[in-house]
Computed example of a mutant assay.
Amino acid sequence: MSDLCPVYAPFFSAMGCTSAIVFTCIGASYGTAKSGVGISAMAVLRPDQMMKCVVPVVMAGIIAIYGLVVSVLISSNLSTQIPLAAGFIQLGAGLSVGLAGLAAGFAVGIVGDAGVRGTAQQPRLFVGMILILIFAEVLGLYGLIVALIMNSKAQGMKC
């Protein structure tokens, strides 16, 4: 072990892997729960529109997939001896997708809840809700892109 490759360097990679999946799953679960409550309330008034209004739940679930992709990529590079810089970069990549996914999940949940309730009263709101959901979802996609770029920089580093 050298100063550039200490024994604790893989810890930071593992924390990046963990934070990617944990934070995106928290965001996705919040988005699913919040949207699900809105769908349940909406389905009492308009059960015919229930399947159409499941879109926010699907979009919330996609956020967790972003974290899963980054977690798998980071974990595939884990070994007992990695450079400290690579560990820090992978930690940053995990936090990037994780926190962006957390924010996106909260946005999808809030918009999905209000959107499906509004769509039950005025069906013309559906297209507007979908557009807002897309803009909320893309926040998580930005985190995924940054995490992929960061992880690719860490892959070439050797001890």
Rank of each mutant, 00 (worst) to 15 (best):
I134P: 01
A147Y: 08
G128A: 08
V127D: 10
A33H: 11
A64C: 03
L95R: 02
L131T: 13
R46A: 04
S2K: 10
A114D: 00
G31K: 05
N77I: 00
V116H: 02
F106E: 07
M42L: 10
L84M: 14
L141M: 15
G112W: 02
I21D: 04
M150E: 15
F12N: 09
Y66V: 02
S40R: 01
G36Y: 07
S29L: 09
Y8V: 10
M129E: 04
A120L: 03
A100W: 03
Y8F: 14
I63S: 02
G87K: 11
C53L: 13
L91G: 11
G31Y: 05
G16Y: 09
G31L: 06
L139H: 01
G67N: 07
I62Y: 00
C17T: 14
Q155M: 13
L91Y: 15
V57C: 08
G109N: 08
L73G: 06
A60Q: 04
K153G: 01
G105D: 07
S35M: 04
P6L: 02
I39R: 01
R46K: 14
V111I: 12
G38F: 01
L141Y: 11
A93N: 09
D3V: 11
M15S: 11
S13C: 11
T24E: 03
Q121Y: 09
S19Y: 15
I82P: 05
I82M: 15
Y142S: 13
V58I: 14
L141C: 11
V72T: 12
D113L: 11
M1I: 08
L139C: 13
M51Q: 13
I145H: 05
G87L: 11
I110A: 10
D113S: 10
T24G: 05
G27R: 06
V70E: 13
L91T: 06
A136R: 01
L139M: 15
G105M: 09
V58T: 06
S76G: 08
F11R: 09
L4F: 09
Q121H: 11
L78Y: 10
L68C: 12
G16C: 06
L133R: 02
C25E: 14
R46S: 04
I132L: 15
P6Y: 04
Y8T: 09
V111W: 00
C25H: 12
S79W: 02
Y142P: 00
I130N: 08
M150R: 05
A104C: 08
L141Q: 06
I145W: 06
L73Y: 01
G67S: 08
V22Y: 04
L95D: 05
I39M: 13
V22S: 09
G140I: 05
A103W: 12
V69P: 02
Y8L: 05
G143Y: 07
Y30F: 15
A120C: 03
G61T: 01
S71F: 08
I145G: 04
I110E: 11
V127S: 14
V37M: 11
I26G: 02
